[in-house]
Amino acid sequence: MSKNEKVVIIKYNAGNIRSVSFALERLGITPVITDDHELIRNADKVIFPGVGAAGSAMAYLKERGLDTLITSLKQPFLGICLGMQLMCKYSEENDTKCLGIFDLNVRLFNKDWRYGNSYLKVPHMGWNTIDHLKSPLFKNVPENSYCYFVHSFFAELNTDTSIAQTSYGVEYASALHKDNFYGVQFHPEKSAEAGAIILKNFLDL
């Protein structure tokens, strides 16, 4: 990771951008927050965060041509939370056709599923483990490390693209990888030391 690396955070109508930006600053990187196609295309690394709803986020991306721009990118690209879900094929949230980078569906946690002695609380909110880690993204991150999650929808497990999985009533994919595209369901920017290592690993790709 070079201090001169150009890291862009894609600016769109889904919050949480400030926290991601601060997490990068703690690693010595000052990111550019932008929706400018040229700046995004020329970045060394692109981060696609997001807290919000799939339907309105996809509509916003399409309006600005960011959907086709994102799928055409070749540099390391990291989607976080909703960002990762939007990289999938389809989301049950607002019945939304998404970017289709990962060939899988995003589904709603079912409140009738059992979890320990009670029913699932949705959103899945708090610290949970990640395991079955298989990617340079998780270098120096031990199996069953705790990360911070806040989400109501989850990506199905997929043998081709899952690089981490988490259990909350159901086993699901908590991180995905295909070519230059990475996605994490948890919030590395809020996941204490483990999260900082994962972000640094992404910057080192």
Partner: peptide, 10 residues
Amino acid sequence: LTFNTKPTLT
């Protein structure tokens, strides 16, 4: 889908 009822959320 593999269901897992063991609590891991802390």
